[in-house]
Every structure is written in C-alpha cells, then in structure tokens.
C-alpha cells in the first residue's frame, strides 16, 4: 500500500516575544502518521487548546510550513506549493471544513457563490447546466439541495445547514481527504449529530478520508477509526480509536477520558476531578523530553519514559 498522506517527523516552532527576548515555542513536535490510499478512514486528532492540533491541520493544508520534517501527499512534498497548477491539484484533493459555520461564509455574499467557484476552478466546469448538476450532486450528498441553498445569504440558514453547505463546498471538487477542524463545536446540540453522522457517511459512501480534529472524546469514539492524542505539541498515544479510548495507557489520555462528563450517571453530581491523573500527566509532560513513542502492537503507540 502506498501512502496517500504522509506526515513525516513534522515539527513547527513559533518565535515568541520581542526583539530582545525571543524564545522558540514548539507548537508541534515530531508528529508522524500516514493515511493509506484505498482505505478511507476517519483519523481523529484529539487535544486541548494549545496541543498543536490546529497547527498540524494548517500544515497539512499547506497554510503553514513545517520547521522540521515533511508532509507528503501521494509521495510529493506539499510545502512550497504556494501557487500554480501543482498547488491547485493538491487543493482539489485535500479540502478543509472550518470550525465556525457562521464565520466560514462571508455574511455579505451568497453561500452558493463558494460552491460554484470551487466547481469552476477545481473541476474546470464552465457550462451553466453542468455547474448546477455538480453543485446539486454535492449538496445532495450532505442532505441539502441546490434549490434550498441557491441565492441564500448565510444568515438565512441555520448553523447545521451552513456547516453542511461548507462540507458540500469541499466535496464539489471530489477530494480524497477532508480536514475538519472542530466542525461541530459551534453547531447546536440538536444539529450536531447530523454533521457527525454525515462524516461517517462520507467515509463509507464516497470513500473520503477525514482528518477529524476535536477536543470531544465522545464523538471521537463514536465515529473514528484511528485516533491520535496530543499533549502540548507531542503525540502521547495513537492507535485504533476504540482500543485506545477503552483502555488508555498514557496518563494524559487517561486524564482526558476521566474528565469527560458522563451522561450515563446523570443527576448524581459526579464531579470529583481526577487529581492523581492530573499529577501523573503533569509529571509525564515534565519528563517528555526523555520519552519516546513505544510500539504496543496492532499499530498502537504510547509515549513512555526512556
């Protein structure tokens, strides 16, 4: 099997501070993973704010250049493709879905404008009828129709509809990989599962691989095939989602799982924070420089000391 997307030892450092007190902060340290061709999957990156998950997503999209390491798409490095035909070809295959559906469309412009532009530029469709057909097909795959969306401004649609329109926008150019950065965190509770279920349908029916970035372990468990947990820029645990979340090994992963507010024992006020796990994950972070990812079998990696 050949790699579709290969994130190879990628690190990103940001320079912080003023002229005299410049320090380097690592947003992402030595991230490695690959998505295979031919086996679409939902790959979830879990982390809290400051874990580097969004920076990693931006690097995969080519919006940020890695300081170290390389990201390759179908064997070709993606950095340096800032414009031109190669960049366009890459953008046709790798498309983003953004976090806030209310921000993702210009409030002064019609929503279909973006879908149309994507179809025109990336699929080279010019005829009116073909454009409409392509747009309708993409919208149908997310449960909308062109008639519902055409001529509408963002404020005329609900958050769930907008997020689906945004996904349809990305799907118009028939991408191989969809990078969804917290796609449901700003969507109302009653509409949230529709989006999450949609991501699963995309994988099963359209063969699109999804890199799902979230802080929500519950939805991650619900839809993902593989999961990668990040703490302060470092990958601490990685493997099959169910396996990792049913029995997390790294203290930080265990802390995250323990902090998820359970709904099964609703009304019992079970809020005692896991102090020992907090302590353990802090210790793990302090000794992170001297740790490495250890193979545990079946593609599972856990960061361990030594």
């Amino acid at each position: 099997m050949s790699a579709l997307l290969h994130v190879d030892g990628v690190s990103k450092y940001f320079a912080m501070g003023g002229l005299l007190s410049r320090t380097q902060t690592a947003a992402v340290r030595d991230a490695n993973f690959r998505l295979e061709q031919g086996t679409p999957e939902i790959f979830t990156i879990v982390g809290e704010s400051g874990s580097g998950k969004t920076t990693l997503a931006r690097m995969i999209l080519g919006l940020e250049t890695p300081t170290e390491g390389e990201i390759r798409y179908k064997g070709n490095p993606i950095s340096g493709l800032s414009f031109g035909a190669a960049r366009r070809a890459f953008m046709t295959d790798v498309q983003p879905v953004f976090q806030n559906p209310f921000e993702a469309f210009n409030p002064l412009k019609r929503v279909d404008r973006y879908i149309e532009s994507t179809a025109k530029v990336f699929r080279g469709i010019t005829a009116r009828a073909d454009l409409d057909a392509a747009m309708d097909e993409a919208l149908a795959s997310v449960g909308l129709s062109l008639a519902e969306v055409r001529g509408r401004y963002p404020h005329e649609l609900s958050g769930g509809q907008l997020q689906r329109a945004a996904i349809a926008r990305a799907l118009v150019c028939k991408p191989k990989v969809l990078i969804a950065d917290e796609p449901v965190s700003m969507v109302d509770a009653s509409l949230r599962m529709a989006i999450v279920n949609l991501l699963r349908t995309l994988r099963d029916d359209l063969g699109v691989s999804v890199i799902y970035i979230t802080h929500d372990l519950a939805t991650a468990y619900y839809i993902s095939d593989r999961i990668m947990i990040m703490q302060k820029g470092r990958v601490v645990e990685m493997g099959a989602a169910r396996q990792v979340l049913d029995d997390p090994q790294h203290p930080y992963s265990r802390l995250l799982k323990a902090s998820v507010l359970s709904v099964t024992d609703a009304g019992q006020g079970n809020l005692e924070p896991a102090r020992d796990l907090m302590e353990a994950s802090r210790t793990a972070l302090e000794h992170a420089d001297a740790s490495r990812l250890v193979e545990q079998g079946e593609g599972r990696l856990v960061r361990m000391a030594g």
Binding site: R88, N106, F122
Partner: peptide
C-alpha cells in the same frame, strides 16, 4: 475563516 474558505474555493 471565510477568507480561507474563499482561498480553498479557488478564488
């Protein structure tokens, strides 16, 4: 975000 959306819409 809509600017990035526009970039990835090929504008």
């Amino acid at each position: 975000e809509f600017t990035r959306q526009a970039i990835f819409a090929g504008m």
